[in-house]
Design a protein around this nucleic acid. Structure first.
Lengths: 254, 254
DNA sequence: CGGCAAGTTGAGCCAGGTCAACTCCGGTGG
DNA sequence: CCACCGGAGTTGACCTGGCTCAACTTGCCG
């Protein structure tokens, strides 16, 4: 149900508007005009964040492009990134006050749309399609966070990185070359997200590359050369992650 | 808005029914009768799980008592518990099929109520109070999973355990003795939830007890004797978690 | 083309994992 | 009621994956 930009709202220029599975694309004309008038788009640079006050008055944030995150800070300065948000995610911070659950922070140049809570609430109450989309998105965020927690809890460094590559892959629109994956965040942030050190991230990428499983096109782009093996590593199959020098030796002997 | 059990449904006997902030307590009489007739209550023993089929036909599960979990399994048998669900949580597995995201499994004797998706959907569409409660609950699940991920990613063993004690505390109804916390799951499961080994859990509990921060009433019950210090440990304040023998030495010298 | 942030590489070390032996506890049957 | 049994938890000794720190290289932006 992608549609023509017949509307005179700023939404007609917004990339989100054309995505059939997105929230905005499923609104009626009046809803869209209403929402558009009462909402605020905003561009953030990497590292920029929302103040408590901003969040209180604009607790509902739709991500149009870029990568957004929730960052937790420990007393002694250790940081961790609890969740990543990308295009299409709708962050609902309305119950935020209950704890100090870390802060929202942009990990790259990011476009967001801060939705009017009143209009949003009204749409959710009356438009079943829109409600389902928001609901699915929230449930997805929840599952993603759970998956992420599972990854962090028992996986080793290499396995976590492999999982992350697949997470990136699955979250970017299907693209030309099947193995091409873009890594949308810096090494440091990736380390904080996966609960490891940047040094370890670097070593793991190198390891994967040395073994011919991936190829680094640049810092932000990898090409998976052997999807099944990477998958097995991500799933914690030890035989896939251990047998490195072994298989090389066999090859050179043969 | 706690109410009298005037209804002839099985809900009138259900503990959930009297909890004002719960889903069921906010339904109209007709909604409740409808939901009750179309839903199925069920008791599970520790270790019991739902089959894929059961989940497909009954994807919406309300927890009445006990502890439920989502468990992820790696190829080589490593397990991890991605999330815990307790009384009042409503688990919505309707988008489950997208990945094999681990399985639901009871960690203790558990009572659940499997809600009819159709009736549930209808209530959510028409009853704003009920909708808000479900929505808040889901958002809470999402935040909890994120917090958990943050805990796992950068915290050390002792800090994770301290966090967990507070998580338990905050999730059980306010009780008599301020420091009393019940640990509703086994050590093994706790280890899987926190991404550590049972041995390490044991050592950490011992450490906290040796330092007089908590007291173990039994395997399933602790009493926090020094809440501020435990809080500081949970927040990653190194001075709180390291200075053990140190402070003892000072005391004995003075 | 220079300067600085970001990323990489190397060497050494330690928190927590692993393995094995032991103890505790709750349930069961004689 | 007690003895027994098996699962759950604990303790100790050892080992290793990934952290730390420091030096180096690369890539990006003006």
């Amino acid at each position: 149900m992608s549609r023509q930009p017949t509307l005179k709202t700023k939404c007609a220029k917004c990339a989100m508007f054309f995505e059939s599975s997105g929230f905005c694309a499923n609104l009626t004309e009046t809803e869209l005009v209403d929402l558009s008038n009462q909402s605020r788009t905003m561009d953030l640079k990497r590292g920029e964040t929302f103040s408590e006050d901003q969040l209180r008055s604009w607790p509902i944030i739709a991500i149009t492009s870029g990568v957004f995150s929730i960052q937790h800070l420990l007393e002694d300065g250790r940081k961790s990134i609890a969740a990543l948000f990308m295009r299409g995610d709708i962050i609902d911070m309305r119950s935020f006050s209950r704890r100090n659950r870390g802060q929202l922070i942009a990990l790259s140049k990011t476009e967001v749309c801060r939705l009017s809570p009143a209009v949003f609430e009204n749409i959710v109450a009356t438009n079943p399609n829109a409600r389902h989309i928001v609901w699915d998105n929230l449930r997805d965020q929840s599952f993603r966070a759970q998956d992420h927690a599972a990854d962090l809890s028992k996986k080793q460094a290499l396995e976590k990185l492999a999982s992350f590559i697949f997470e990136c892959k699955s979250r970017q629109q299907v693209n030309l070359t099947p193995g091409a994956v873009s890594i949308p965040i810096r090494r440091v942030d990736l380390a904080e997200y996966l609960g490891m050190q940047p040094e370890t991230i670097s070593r793991c990428f190198k390891d994967l590359e040395d073994r011919g499983i991936v190829e680094m096109k640049s810092l932000r782009a990898v090409n998976i050369k052997n999807i099944p093996v990477l998958r097995r590593i991500a799933n914690g199959d030890k035989s896939a992650s251990v047998a490195k020098t072994h298989s090389i030796r066999i090859l050179s002997v043969a």
